[in-house]
Design a protein around this nucleic acid. Structure first.
Lengths: 148, 148
DNA sequence: GATAGTTGTAATATAGCATGTTACATCTTA
DNA sequence: TAAGATGTAACATGCTATATTACAACTATC
């Protein structure tokens, strides 16, 4: 399994929104061109970001505006915004029918839950440490390298 | 997205193999009964565990034997054994067609790769800390609680 | 205020993957 | 030698991610 590409698409979009901030016509079609997906995908991802309060948009009006500075938007914010993982169950998909008549079967879920949560927490903690400013800086650094 | 239930199934199987160690006929059908899935699923999961060197089996002969003590089998060992995530690409699925003619598009991948790896590493590090002995102890504790 | 451009969203299509199931050759054990 | 088990291939099925078309509602500009 893998975390949906919606996540990297969202990071790409926010980076592009900032990078092309002063340009006209940074609409869903332009962004779709940069990301390499259908404009409707861009609009739905931006829709999720808007619901999460990360960007502002105006229906009918081109583009989107970041609601916060880049260093206040973390990977975790985006990961949550675009529903990267199942909200109800979390990162791990537990098999659904362990046998209640078996001592292992009826207790394994409880026995594992805390450990699975610890793994997910470790991952999410790291995501909270990484901001879009980090990505922006790395992107600009790569662009500068090209110039040489 | 979610990590395949093959992972929790594998943990369940190993726990059951240990718990019912002294019982006869702990075959794929018995285990399938405890886990609540088809016996063929059990055999394929055990097959992966065998390929990874975590259990020994003998074709035609019932059951499986743990290759190492429980405290030397980590969540990470199992997660790797059962191919919980894509081997080539890792935990995150990067969108596949960023535009090489766009400065952001042709650099975003390089700019993100290190950060994505850091997230995956954080998760895997936590998985390496958790052993099947931990799960076994928690399971037995839950079983004891029932007795009261 | 009319027109062109844009967003938001519903509806549908499609492909890939996880899981279920049947079947059977091959092996072990008694 | 017979019964029971594994290993694995082949196929079925449902779910999810992504792509795509279509269009109503809104904005910006002339």
């Amino acid at each position: 399994m893998q975390i949906t590409s919606r996540f990297t698409i969202a990071v790409h979009i926010i980076t592009a929104l900032d990078y092309f901030r002063d340009m006209d016509r940074v609409n869903s079609e332009f962004l779709a061109g940069s990301v390499g997906v259908n404009p409707v995908i861009v609009r739905t991802v931006i829709g999720k970001l808007r619901e999460a309060g990360l960007v502002h948009t105006l229906k009918g009006s081109s583009g989107a505006e970041l609601a916060r500075p880049l260093d206040e938007i973390t990977f975790y914010d985006i990961y949550e915004a675009v529903d990267s993982v199942n909200e109800d169950e979390g990162l791990f998909h537990f098999h659904e029918q362990p046998n209640p008549e078996c001592p292992v079967g009826r207790n394994i879920h409880k026995a594992m839950d805390g450990r699975l949560a610890a793994v997910q927490n470790a991952m999410e903690a790291e995501m909270k440490r990484i901001t879009l400013k980090d990505v922006m800086e790395d992107t600009r650094a790569e662009i500068l390298k090209e110039a040489k």
